[in-house]
Every structure is written in C-alpha cells, then in structure tokens.
C-alpha cells in the first residue's frame, strides 16, 4: 500500500493497473518539480544573463565564473549542498523545494546562455538602425531586439524544459517522492521492479514525445523574423 492505494498482485496485469494511480501521484510531483525548477531557471537565468552583459568586469566576471561553476559540476553535488550543507548553517528547506531549487540553479546556467545567444543573434544592423533613428535604448530592447530574439529563445528554452523533466529523478535521493522514486519503493515492497520501472519509462517516453512535439511546433510556427508589430 502506498498513498493509501493497495496493489493487486494476483496477476501482472492487475498489478500494473493497480499501481498506475500510485505512479500518477509521483508523476504529479515530477511535473511540479519540473515546472517550479523551470520557473526558477527562467528567472535566475535572466538575472545571470543580465549580469554577464553588465558594463563593468567586476560584475561580469563573477557572473561568468558562477555560470561556469554551475555548468561544470554535477547536479547531484549541488543538490547535496543545498540539502545537507545549508542546514549546517541553519537553513533548512523542504525536500521538494530543495530539489526544485537545485534544478533551477543548474539550468539557470543554460538558460542564461540561451537568452544571451538569442539576443546576440539579432543582427548588429538592427541596433545601429535603432541608434541612427535615436530610439531610446530601452525602447530598442523591448521593441526591436526582444521581438526578434524571442522566436529563437523559446524553442531552446523548451528543450531545457524537457531536460529538467528528465533530471527530476535525481531528486529521489533527497527523499522527494517523484515518479521514479515511487516506482522504486513499489519495487522494494513487492519485490517486482520490472513492471513499475517499465511503466515509469513508458510514461517518460510519452511525456518527452509530447514535449518534443510541442517544441518542434513552436520552432516551426513562431515567426522567424520576429513577433510582428503593425
């Protein structure tokens, strides 16, 4: 029994059917962690991107160093730091929040690069034309650069959303009951791992296929030349 749901071991089919709702509980946690982690990555990545393009080196370099550090160390280390080290300094976060934060921090390094690359890919001539027309730099950013960068940025961010979803099982090591963790516990208690693990794999496959389809749809349907302004 798990989440108040009994499993039926009378046959393999009955077992699979009975644990499905249990796995769905885990799936909800997986999706929650994905969404919260992605949201943190989006915001933190924006902050990092802004710092990395700051006019002074004093701000730029530490931001670059932090990005590099995050990217070059395993997610698990960052997770352990947040989960085991922070409490030593009196800061204890719930497991779920710790996990989502670790995902968000890890992926902010990547999203910051997506933002930067997207903005830099807008032709230099666009900034020059805006300058020649005396448009304020804030207006240039919001109405000239950003509308042209967004269609490049969004599909790339979508790919990281899929990656985050696939990294969520790492959170099981800090007791977050996401889908894979739930499957393993079912296996531990019933002695049968094949069915729950296969089902998790299948569910992941379905989710990533849907997500990839969505990313591809965005990629082909976002206006290449920018969000249009009439």
């Amino acid at each position: 029994m798990f989440f108040g749901i009994e499993w039926d071991t009378s046959s393999q089919w009955a077992f699979a059917v009975s644990i499905f709702p249990i796995l769905l509980h885990g799936l909800v946690v997986t999706l929650q962690a994905t969404v919260v982690g992605f949201f943190i990555a989006l915001i933190l990545g924006l902050v990092l991107a802004a710092l990395k393009s700051a006019p002074t080196r004093l701000i730029r370099w530490p931001a670059k160093l932090v990005t590099e550090f995050i990217r070059d160390t395993p997610l698990l280390i960052q997770l352990f730091f947040l989960f085991y080290v922070l409490p030593e300094f009196g800061l204890t976060l719930p497991a779920f929040l710790t996990g989502a934060l670790a995902l968000g921090v890890q992926y902010s390094a990547y999203t910051s690069e997506v933002y930067r690359a997207g903005l830099e890919a807008v032709a230099k001539g666009q900034r020059e034309a805006a300058r020649a027309l005396n448009l304020a730099s804030s207006r240039t950013f919001t109405h000239i650069i950003l509308p042209q960068a967004v269609p490049r940025i969004i599909p790339a961010l979508g790919n990281y959303l899929v990656s985050i979803m696939k990294d969520v099982p790492v959170l099981s090591v800090v007791t977050v009951l996401e889908m894979l963790g739930v499957a393993k516990i079912i296996g531990d208690r019933t002695g049968g791992y094949l069915i729950p693990l296969s089902m998790v794999g299948g569910l992941y496959l379905v989710m990533t296929i849907i997500a990839s389809f969505g990313v591809r749809y965005l990629d082909t349907h976002l206006p290449k030349r920018g969000l249009s302004l009439k």
Binding site: A123, G125, Q126, E128, A129, A132, I144, P147, Q148, P223, R225, G226, L227, S228, L229, K230
Partner: peptide, 11 residues
C-alpha cells in the same frame, strides 16, 4: 545603410 537594416518584424 548598405544592408537596409529595416525592422523585419514591423510593417
């Protein structure tokens, strides 16, 4: 400009 540099997302 040589490359026109029109804003491609604007009419």
């Amino acid at each position: 400009f040589q490359q026109f540099n029109l804003f491609p997302h604007m009419t």
